[in-house]
Design a binder for these strands. Structure first.
Lengths: 200, 200
DNA sequence: GTCTTGTTTGAATGTTCAATCAAGAAGTGG
DNA sequence: CCACTTCTTGATTGAACATTCAAACAAGAC
């Protein structure tokens, strides 16, 4: 175990607590007890609670490759299957948390009603990196997707389906809501692939 | 102006404030100053803040027809166009709020991380009523949708697209994210209608 | 008029919270 | 070994919060 800086400890704890309890419901005291630090140490590193949030959002942004994409895509080559492997990763999280899983970014995006511009930009940046990765898959699928299709819009639609599916699965405490959203998306892709083969 | 009971005043104010600021960030003091009531009056009607939330969720549930469906469907007959008229209603809200709009139910669903069972049930019930209404439209579309399609899943997918689209529009402060989600959904429906005409 | 029941008043309570800061410890360069 | 910076300690502060309650008020029943 490499020696961990106070900053790393706080970010690590905050990623987990913001995800579990939300930003507002996570107190500085929660972070201190989890990290075994004192308030002065925390405030030495982060001037305010919001700066912790910014650190967390930067960590998600900078870690998307290692934390999200590589684990999901390690053993998948087909570009369209990569998209569904990514969604399968979310499904695993939902099941592992007894359907209490919420996408950390999506939950924060809806919890924070008047976010600081830096916070909002980081939320948007996180969404953008996610959809850019999916857009890469769609691009790699080449002619399997019809010419006219807006690839960026389709990638955003994948995010839409994921976030909406996660929200419903959590609300109903039932993965099947997520599964149905993925299935509908799958059918959409199949219809697109069919349309690509037999041009009107 | 009919005389308004304290209960009605509180529910009315809470619907607006929970929507604008979220549940946790709305204080009892906010509700009191908005309604010009005293704390004792509020606690005479609602034993706790959570009971106000329950009242709000019941009001949304009981008001879906008048507040949401009738305004959106007043002048629309085609069942599939009804679905997109409903989404158009959300678009209007997004634009009218300078892209800060969040679906009240969806925002609460993600903000409340450990909701009381009654609260969770009411959130689920609200989603269910919404999707049931959409499912009714899909059913009314009859043979325009292919036989094999899971109508409930498709209705849930419409909710998924709405919630995901609202989330992204709000995060990016840009309606076009919602518009693209709707457009993708529209294409999905067009592909389905085409498939219904020319069976494999 | 007075009893009863339902409602309102608003100051007070106890808790939780983010943030502060003076004092001290640890680490670094000369 | 000293000077200087960086980091840590933890008690403290003041604001915000949900909730309580004894006292006052209102209005219909008899």
């Amino acid at each position: 175990m490499a020696p961990q800086s106070a900053r790393d400890k706080i970010i690590h704890a905050a990623m987990e607590l913001f995800w579990l309890k939300g930003y507002n419901s996570t107190s500085i005291a929660d972070l201190l007890s989890r990290t075994q630090l004192n308030s002065g140490s925390l405030y030495h590193v982060f001037p305010s609670k919001q700066d912790v949030l910014i650190g967390v959002l930067e960590a998600y942004r900078d870690g998307i490759e290692e934390m999200l994409l590589q684990p999901a895509w390690g053993h998948v080559d087909d570009p369209i299957e990569k998209i569904f492997a990514l969604l399968q990763g979310y499904r695993t999280m939902i099941v592992d948390t007894d359907c209490t899983y919420g996408c950390p970014i999506g939950s924060l995006a809806l919890e924070l009603h008047e976010p600081d511009p830096r916070v909002r930009d980081l939320l948007a940046e996180n969404f953008e990196n996610w959809t850019r990765a999916v857009e890469g898959c769609i691009g790699a699928a080449g002619k399997r997707i019809p010419r006219g299709v807006d690839k960026k819009a389709l990638a955003q639609f994948v995010l839409t389906a994921m976030e909406g599916g996660v929200m419903q699965a959590r609300t109903h405490r039932d993965v099947s809501y997520f599964d149905r959203a993925v299935k509908q998306l799958r059918e959409h892709f199949e219809l697109l692939e069919k349309a690509a083969k037999t041009p009107a």
